[in-house]
Nucleic acid binder design. Structure first.
Lengths: 345, 345
DNA sequence: GTTTCGATTCAAACCGGTTTAGTAAATCCG
DNA sequence: CGGATTTACTAAACCGGTTTGAATCGAAAC
């Protein structure tokens, strides 16, 4: 084991012939150190290969130099969702530049609160991300109580003192509905995510509003759980109502839905049009290639972490706008079959 | 902001009428504290709601109480791979019980070494996981140089002083090949992962050996990159060689391959059998449902983190056996078409 | 020639734990 | 009963940084 005992600030001080305090000042670019002492200290530090000990800095300035992410989803759902890795990659992009670390916590849903408390209580992180917002999310009050800075992805429905990255799924859903309406569909269904999730209920509302705006009758909405199994079951249910198009709230369910259609002998897109959400890697490689809504979780991760770090540093932070999601049209959408009945169901 | 300034060990000491040292002893269950003082200290700590400061403990015992995971894959690939979330969930399962945290680092492949150095240099973690082993993986020497304990997923090909979770993909691949052989296939192809990855090359070798063992001629092997796009391209290439079955090294490529088959008018499983690897959530919900190899990354995560924590605590740790992967047979595999030529290609 | 001032620098305190050395009282033992 | 242990506890040092208050110095001001 190469345990050459990392040099401390004391070693640097000795090497440069100054006191610890001066070294600290010099290395942090504070005024009050003459130019040549600073120079001498810097080269000494470099020669010794000195790196500041995060542990020691953390204790003395009572900061952790880390931010936290608590994931309360089931591992299977996490695995199927391309959101997290991309988001985390974006987060890292910002964090590593600023010398911060990401502390991840994956917990069963029942232990979510405990997860945040643990993170805060042991002082492991200086702030957290708030993902998968729920309707009237109890975590907002919790984090305010804990005094833990946070940045949420999407603006919560209730009051929140925390800045948000203004992710808005509604234009994406609206674009999908508009696209289908323009193709001539009049009977469109929506397979929604769980209603207690803000994105679940918001996408649903966006769907309903977009239908109304297009002058179409309300369509059936089935709530599913974002999983392939859930999507398949919901698809069966919805196909019985005789719709000609389905707007799914994620790609995974849409892809499962494609299979159900094949199984039931419903041709896509000739008899049924289908749109997904997320624009997964796989979307372009299923049969038929899936029309989907492209989002940019990598960007959200970057923006969210920039905002969070600024917030932690005590700067005032406004909500962060991000570009609207884009509809990516592929072969799973087409005009409805000609003979289809046009009266409302 | 509820900043009631968390109580320190000093406050507990004062409340219990003893010295800091005694409190520390009492709370760590060390001998040398009488039963009723211990009692008194414990209730005092409880009443004050005291939690030890990780920062302070970290500094004084020079441990971070955290382990690291460096992910050097592209975010898109990460997003498509259900391995990571499941693995991480398993890791967390162990860590949270033992009061440890997981520090994640997602870096471009070119900065992988820097990632480990950063983690070690700033003393952020006490050990790391070694995933996605490569052939002659340079990280092993690097970590030994850095003196950072590690546990690898799968045993490296070269020498390594680190314990490994003995994940072995070979039985899974072998089972797939055997299954296809038993169905009567004689011309089987393999779409492999990148050869510089140990799992990529091992699955490939397992494929070749299993063919030989079944008395079958060598089949075409195409190296792809685990992505849907790569899988689709490789499938086109391989279908031109007239095989009746394809063993894919992951589900994502297999699912993309299914679409290519549809597109080329090749019926699955009537004319072409297909097997995946990973047994993704989606595998059961594509058309036809995908025969795949079920692995258990959640378990690996649990085992790996147990081993890593033991290693960090200075216990000697042996390689950890895990159950072999199981073949899950679904509808994407069937006997080859009757008229197929049986001579070697 | 003092006085004053700003620029440098240092010594010491501090963050909140753990750990060691040392002390006083209780217990053991012959 | 007196010395040797043992037990229960305290005070202080330590981990490696940051930060404060005071000391030192040369130069400008009076």
């Amino acid at each position: 084991m190469t345990r050459a005992d990392r040099p401390t600030i004391r070693d640097v001080a000795r090497a440069a012939g100054v006191s610890k305090g001066t070294v600290s000042f010099a290395l942090n670019g504070r005024p009050g150190v003459s130019e040549d002492t600073r120079e001498r200290i810097l080269t000494a530090a470099l020669e010794l290969g000195w790196t500041p000990s995060t542990k020691a800095r953390a204790l003395s300035v009572s900061r952790s130099f880390a931010v936290g992410l608590v994931l309360a989803r089931e591992p299977e759902l996490l695995g199927a969702d391309p959101f997290f890795p991309a988001f985390i990659a974006g987060v890292e992009r910002t964090l590593s530049d600023r010398g911060q670390a990401l502390v991840l916590q994956v917990v069963p849903e029942s232990e979510e609160e405990a997860g945040y408390r643990r993170l805060a209580g042991t002082g492991r992180v200086d702030g957290v991300f708030l993902l998968d917002l729920r309707v009237d999310d109890p975590r907002i009050a919790l984090l305010e109580e804990l005094g833990l800075p946070a940045v949420s992805i999407a603006r919560p429905d209730g009051p929140s003192e925390f800045p948000a990255v203004l992710v808005d799924d509604r234009p994406g859903i609206a674009a999908a509905v508009r696209h289908l309406a323009e193709l001539g569909h009049r009977h469109i269904a929506h397979i929604a995510g769980p209603a207690h999730f803000l994105h679940g209920s918001r996408r649903r509302r966006a769907f309903e509003e977009a239908l109304a705006e297009a002058g179409l009758p309300a369509g059936p909405v089935v709530e599913a759980d974002f999983s392939a199994a859930g999507g398949a079951a919901a698809t069966r249910e919805v196909l019985a109502t005789g719709v000609t198009a389905i707007v799914y709230s994620n790609d995974l369910m849409a892809i499962a839905g494609l299979s159900v259609a094949v199984e039931l002998g419903v041709a896509v897109p000739a008899e049924l049009s289908v749109t997904g959400f997320d624009n997964t890697d796989l979307a372009a490689y299923v049969t038929p290639p899936l029309t989907s809504v492209r989002t940019d979780p990598y960007l959200w991760g970057r923006k969210a972490s920039e905002a969070l770090l600024d917030l932690i540093d005590g700067r005032t932070v406004d909500d962060v706008p991000v570009p609207a999601a884009q509809l990516v049209i592929r072969a799973s959408t087409a005009p409805p079959p000609p003979g289809v009945r046009t009266e409302t169901p």
